[in-house]
Nucleic acid binder design. Structure first.
Lengths: 152, 152
DNA sequence: AAATAATACGTGTATATACATATAAATTAA
DNA sequence: TTAATTTATATGTATATACACGTATTATTT
């Protein structure tokens, strides 16, 4: 669906403003599609991201701060997301002995199983849903990083 | 900042997976930048969107459902966003006389003023922050719509 | 060493998303 | 016309974002 149809408007100041809205809409669309597949595993998109970050370091442990700085949405309240994963017994919290301020999080066996199953589902969704060739994706990545190039 | 730095990872399955994450990160980045400017006006990004939709139809009124289908994030709980705008006296709720199920929302004078001031701020932010030429934006819009082209 | 500052995490609050359900009004079917 | 269905909105609950603040622990300064 074209952006104009999706938000029932074609009043854009210019193509750049339209592109910004298009990025916001596409992000919502991607998140929605990803979340659909995760539902059967009883986890949310954000919980999946935390599990994936833990997997990236597995079997090493990783503290809350290190998870936070790897999240796509930088204001994620990681302790609270970990709360929910802990209730489901997908992760375990331990106070670091090297620095007792730190809480280290580790995947449980159940967490690994859920992550593997849900990754299959997510990957399949992304492949069937994200219709871009490798070259188009390279181009899209370039444009998005150019868009953000004002960043300090 | 490159995506790799932003999420401290360079393990992408392929450019398409990276592009999807890049869209998600860029959307968060855009929202964060927009929200900064709105803070001085005491409204959130989502409240701003509702005001902008109302302005698009002003002085005509518009019902909750019509606002909802124009929102970028389609699962927005519009009645609740309107609640907050109503408390700040930026909008007014009236039951439609043609169809008493409908609640029609209209901008107040205060709402118009806030919208105009915040629009200036938002537009300025977007111009200084979104670094793309008109042609690059056209290209980006094309790629995003191609990405979503699996949509029913 | 004691005082101060910085850091890591948890928690509280307001607002939002996501989704289910309730309620009232309008439409359609019987 | 009554009953059933659909529609529009509001409301409830769980989770998330955004941000402020408290507390414990570590690091730094005096």
């Amino acid at each position: 669906m074209k952006l104009e149809e999706a938000i029932k408007s074609n009043k854009f100041k210019n193509e750049t403003q339209k592109a910004a809205l298009n990025v916001l809409y596409t992000a919502w669309w991607l998140k929605t599609n990803m979340s659909k597949g995760l539902k059967e595993f009883g986890i949310t998109h954000e919980q999946y991201n935390v599990l994936r970050i833990l997997k990236g370091k597995y079997p090493d442990q990783i503290c809350v701060r290190d998870i936070a700085c790897r999240m796509i949405e930088k204001n994620s309240n990681v302790p609270r997301i970990v709360d929910r994963l802990e209730i489901k017994k997908l992760v375990k919290r331990t106070t670091s002995q090297l620095d007792k301020r730190e809480t280290v999080i580790s995947l449980t066996q159940a967490g690994i199983l859920i992550l593997e199953a849900s990754t299959k589902s997510i990957d399949h969704t992304m492949e069937t849903v994200t219709i871009l060739t490798e070259m188009e994706s390279v181009q899209l990545n370039k444009l998005l990083e150019k868009l953000r190039s004002s960043e300090e």
